[in-house]
């Protein structure tokens, strides 16, 4: 049972007031129709499962109904920080990883470039 600080209510609340909504910083591609099936599949289905620092999207569903982000250590369950949508995490496992969460190859497609420029802007 986590004890989660809601950045909007500005206090800790019990986990049962929240829903987890998956990995954070997965922006919807700006032009889905331009995505290949593979790219769309990456966006849709491929998620990290790190041992250690992880960024997650949560919603204070029984409280203020706001979504926000959590940086959590998946090993110790420590919540390292919470931050609002649109903000960037200050605790990161590897700074490059968050920036390029979708880019696995060194040669970037136009989509990947848009993703990168968008990354962190809204999600």
């Amino acid at each position: 049972m986590f004890y989660i600080y809601c950045p909007h209510c500005c206090e800790h609340r019990e986990e049962e007031e929240f829903h987890a909504a998956g990995q954070a910083h997965i922006p919807r591609p700006l032009d889905p129709d331009a995505c290949t099936d593979k790219e769309w599949g990456e966006y849709m289905y491929f998620r990290k499962n790190p041992r250690g620092i992880h960024h997650e999207l949560w919603v204070h569903s029984a409280g203020c109904r706001k979504f926000f982000n959590i940086t959590r250590d998946t090993q110790t369950y420590e919540i390292k920080e919470v931050y609002k949508i649109g903000e960037k995490p200050s605790v990161v496992a590897n700074a490059v990883e968050v920036q390029n969460s979708h880019t696995q190859n060194s040669s970037k497609t136009p989509l990947e470039n848009t993703l990168e420029s968008q990354s962190g802007a809204t999600l």
């Binding site: 209510c9 609340r13 007031e17 029984a62 409280g63």
Partner: peptide, 10 residues
């Protein structure tokens, strides 16, 4: 004032 769960409702 808080919005919260109340038993199994809210």
């Amino acid at each position: 004032v808080v919005s919260t769960i109340f038993a199994k409702s809210g």
